[in-house]
Design a binder for these strands. Structure first.
Lengths: 205, 205
DNA sequence: GTCTATAATTTGATAGAC
DNA sequence: GTCTATCAAATTATAGAC
């Protein structure tokens, strides 16, 4: 047990691990206490209730998942570079946090109010609108094939996120161990941007 | 309450609704009893335990989700038609059962053993191998751009499934009501096959 | 701050009348 | 087959000693 990490931080780390693995309803305060190497009562001393502790973990997770999109879509690079950057960045974040998507999606499904509250004051929607405009411009200037901006954004996110959300199923279906799954992801990082850009490439006249 | 539906069937229907909404750990036997309009003890009379009842719902859900892939990838049509058919069929199944993917993925993540047991005797993997070979043939014959078969399969499934798994998030992020979300899905059904086929189209010489 | 002990509540499951 | 009443175990939360 790391002696130089504060108890509060150890609880957060333990809660992150347990909540992301088991979800809000499946997680037990005892699991978190065990994982943190402390007593159950201390959890309540620091965070008062399971729900309070969960909020912290959920917000942290949603933040990590959504901010990535926001600060890449927001800047001023050309569309094709932006798509490549988005894929690369997203795949990197998800490689480090493979179970985040399923956790966040599951908990939003349980209580959509959570994500609505989360969005307040996060400036997500305006950033997204700007990205939509950039896509629409590229369509109008015939730099890419006609496509509705929301459809394209969902295509990009689907292709990045889904393999992680489905990793336990994939590993069974394709009979991959963890190392082979990581190889699959590494190959994907390299090939995904060109797959998307090829789909968007306008017909030559 | 429908009088001509057997109690057993009413329980199954109620369990499906509650489990798919709340997941195994979040669902309460009382919720299911209420939804079925019967007493909690009757659930145990018919199905003995929560876990037994859950197994039935989970298997049914996994079946619906996976058999769709199996019986389309298995037949003898050309690759481009098969991809189109796969998208159309999948999107239709998911429109009718939008919460299935998140439910199944979440429960597999909780206990990967479930899906391994499910696969036994289902003949999924050989069917998939045949589809992989067909893709590899198309690559070798330069009918499509070079791509690893598993990557392509995951691309197709990602693009079909993810919007449903993420629907509560999408509806908030894009500010869509249910009707607008359905419009989004209808548009997607029309456009997705050509997006994928465009990505695969080989360079002209 | 941290622990032990325990309260208060929820929940899956059973017993037994009808 | 269906219900009421109840048990036993699990689980969140708190009281109080140190």
């Amino acid at each position: 047990m790391e002696k130089d990490i504060s108890t509060e931080q150890r609880i957060i780390d333990a809660a992150r691990k347990v909540f992301i693995q088991k979800g809000m309803s499946g997680a037990r305060m005892q699991d978190i206490a065990d994982e943190a190497g402390i007593n159950k009562a201390l959890l309540h001393y620091y965070f008062r209730s399971k729900d309070k502790l969960f909020q912290i973990i959920f917000r942290e997770a949603a933040e990590k998942l959504l901010v990535t999109v926001k600060d890449i879509t927001g800047n001023e690079t050309p569309l094709d570079e932006k798509i490549t950057a988005l894929c690369n960045r997203y795949m990197d974040v998800l490689s480090e946090n493979p179970y985040l998507p399923l956790f966040v999606l599951h908990e939003i499904h349980q209580d959509p109010g959570r994500i609505i509250n989360f969005f307040k004051g996060k400036n997500m929607v305006p950033q997204l609108q700007k990205f939509f405009l950039q896509i629409q411009d590229a369509v109008d200037n015939k730099q890419i094939k006609p496509i509705s901006p929301p459809q394209l954004v969902i295509n990009i996110i689907s292709l990045c996120v889904f393999p992680f959300a489905a990793s336990p199923l994939m590993q069974t279906l394709f009979d991959l161990d963890t190392w082979q799954f990581n190889l699959f992801i590494e190959e994907r990082k390299k090939k995904l941007p060109e797959f998307i850009l090829a789909a968007l490439k306008p017909e030559k006249k």
